[in-house]
Amino acid sequence: MMRLRTVSRLGLLTAAVVAGFVTSLALGSSLIPPGRVLAALFGEGARMDEVIVWTLRLPRVLLAILAGAALALAGALLQRVTRNPMAAPSILGITDGAALGVVSFLWVFSDEANRLTVSIHWQPLAAAIGAFGFALIAGGLTLADPRGRGPLRLILYGIALAALAKAAVTLVMIIGPVYRAGQALTWLTGTIGAAHWGDVAVVAAGLAVAAPVLAWLNLPLRQLALDPQTAAATGLPVGRTQIVLLAISVALTALAVSQVGAVGFVGLIAPHAARLVIGAFAPGYLVATALIGSLLVLGADTLARLIAAPLELPAGAITALIGAPLFLTLLIRRQGTHG
């Protein structure tokens, strides 16, 4: 039984994403009014408009929407599994782990002429390996922590490992082929500029697999809000649920990062915004989180190409500027209530 309020707010969010979608398609080096955008979308526009919309702008806009949803969901899952409102892929070192995976992949599989010796489609897998590797280390360190497994510990280990991954990325970029290094550098800061339909398809496929699984796990996910002992006493197989959800979260992060780079803080901001908009225990919480994530990355990417046009800023820098103050606010409020 979804309350009317929840339904209407989800509707509003969806409308906002659609509006953002059309606006973002309209804006760029040449402005195409929304009416012509829609015409071009439905194959009835001018030939030039159709080329711009379909081949230049649409893949980028769709990629921003899908990657935003993936990163936001990854953050929401992570926050539930760790029972820590400050957990997010970029804070826990998962994002940088994925980045390391990608850079290493480009390094290992390039020949002298800087051509890849294997298909670029393996890149998401490399990102996933890096992300899982760092997630495992951070998790392992926290579990084996002699000072207890408090939620802050995981974040601290994540920060430490993120620094390590960043350093390794730098080194690999210097060792690796110069051409690839340049490419990796723009990608690392989180840009969505060079989007292709193939990238869009990869992220879309990942979300299509994750969505039904998350719907199936919706109740257990709620139950994880309780402490592990109590959750187990209500009949939840806690360990198994945590592992499955964590794996989905890391996979979604890896997928998004491999396509749009290290766009940080989305996984932190979106779940919190969703809490404010419809509540953390409302039925549509995950849907709202995904929509807000889409809106956020789409907005950041659109801003990134407009603020200093014709230069493009990294979308990741803009999300960090929104995310960092939010994180501090959460930290201060948390300390206020829990001493």
Binding site: L152, R153, P314, G316, L321, Q335
Partner: peptide, 29 residues
């Protein structure tokens, strides 16, 4: 200081790292 007297040493680190991340983003822009 706003975190109060009971804030752990980890919390101070988190504040610092976050501020550093924000300043790094601004520098980059």
């Amino acid at each position: 200081l706003r975190l109060g007297p009971n804030a752990g040493r980890a919390t101070i680190l988190l504040v610092g790292v976050t501020i550093a991340a924000m300043l790094a983003s601004l520098t980059q822009i």
